[in-house]
Computed example of a mutant assay.
Amino acid sequence: MSDLIHQSDDSPEQQFELPDEAATRALGARLAKAIAPGLTIYLVGDLGAGKTTLVRGLLEALGHKGAVKSPTYTLIEPYTVSNLNLYHFDLYRFTDPEEFIDAGLEEYFAEQSVCLVEWPDKGQPFLPAADCEVQLTDQGTGRIARLHGSSLKGRELMERIGSAA
């Protein structure tokens, strides 16, 4: 996994080339070394872009031993691992953003939680703002991951990711 780190405006960004699934999981492991309670991380990309694979790598690096599946039908998969309350959301099936409120999902976004959200656009404007956005896009036979810190917590996360190499 090669990475190119650059700054844009005052918001740090990092870019990683992910040639295969193993590299995507390795980026998840690198993210695991940097996360802290109180973070909201958006996972953005087309179907099959590797969002759940990234989460799988993160959870495995934190010591999770069970299966990691996409919460497409359950909306949320909760994990308690490494003293973290981590919630993996998938809002793909939302047809109306108010479903976020109707499902009571806002209660999970707390200072002691780490929330990873797939398809965040489907929960807007009710979904809390991202501290960090991870955008996965196809490039050739692999992918590019672009990480963008958009809050103080997000910028601190980006600094920790940079030093987690």
Score class of each variant (00 low, 15 high):
residue 5 I to G: 06
residue 8 S to Q: 10
residue 8 S to T: 13
residue 9 D to T: 06
residue 13 E to Y: 02
residue 13 E to G: 00
residue 14 Q to S: 15
residue 16 F to P: 00
residue 17 E to K: 13
residue 18 L to S: 06
residue 20 D to P: 08
residue 21 E to F: 08
residue 22 A to P: 03
residue 24 T to N: 14
residue 26 A to F: 07
residue 31 L to C: 09
residue 32 A to S: 03
residue 34 A to K: 06
residue 36 A to M: 14
residue 36 A to C: 11
residue 38 G to Q: 06
residue 39 L to I: 04
residue 39 L to E: 14
residue 44 V to D: 11
residue 44 V to N: 14
residue 45 G to S: 09
residue 48 G to P: 13
residue 50 G to W: 07
residue 52 T to A: 09
residue 53 T to W: 05
residue 53 T to S: 15
residue 53 T to M: 05
residue 54 L to G: 09
residue 55 V to N: 07
residue 56 R to V: 05
residue 56 R to E: 15
residue 59 L to R: 00
residue 62 L to V: 02
residue 63 G to N: 06
residue 64 H to Y: 12
residue 65 K to L: 13
residue 65 K to Q: 15
residue 66 G to V: 02
residue 67 A to H: 05
residue 70 S to C: 06
residue 71 P to R: 08
residue 73 Y to I: 01
residue 79 Y to R: 10
residue 80 T to P: 03
residue 82 S to W: 11
residue 82 S to R: 12
residue 83 N to W: 00
residue 84 L to M: 14
residue 84 L to F: 15
residue 86 L to H: 09
residue 86 L to D: 05
residue 90 D to W: 04
residue 92 Y to M: 14
residue 98 E to M: 10
residue 98 E to V: 15
residue 98 E to W: 07
residue 99 E to T: 05
residue 101 I to K: 06
residue 101 I to M: 08
residue 103 A to H: 13
residue 103 A to E: 10
residue 103 A to T: 09
residue 105 L to A: 03
residue 106 E to P: 04
residue 108 Y to R: 01
residue 109 F to N: 06
residue 109 F to P: 06
residue 113 S to N: 11
residue 113 S to F: 00
residue 117 V to F: 05
residue 118 E to I: 01
residue 118 E to H: 05
residue 119 W to I: 12
residue 120 P to E: 02
residue 120 P to I: 08
residue 122 K to E: 08
residue 122 K to F: 07
residue 122 K to C: 04
residue 125 P to W: 00
residue 128 P to Q: 00
residue 134 V to G: 05
residue 134 V to C: 08
residue 138 D to W: 10
residue 139 Q to D: 04
residue 140 G to M: 11
residue 145 A to Q: 14
residue 145 A to E: 12
residue 147 L to W: 02
residue 150 S to V: 04
residue 150 S to W: 00
residue 151 S to Y: 00
residue 153 K to P: 09
residue 156 E to R: 13
residue 162 G to N: 14
residue 164 A to S: 15
residue 165 A to R: 10
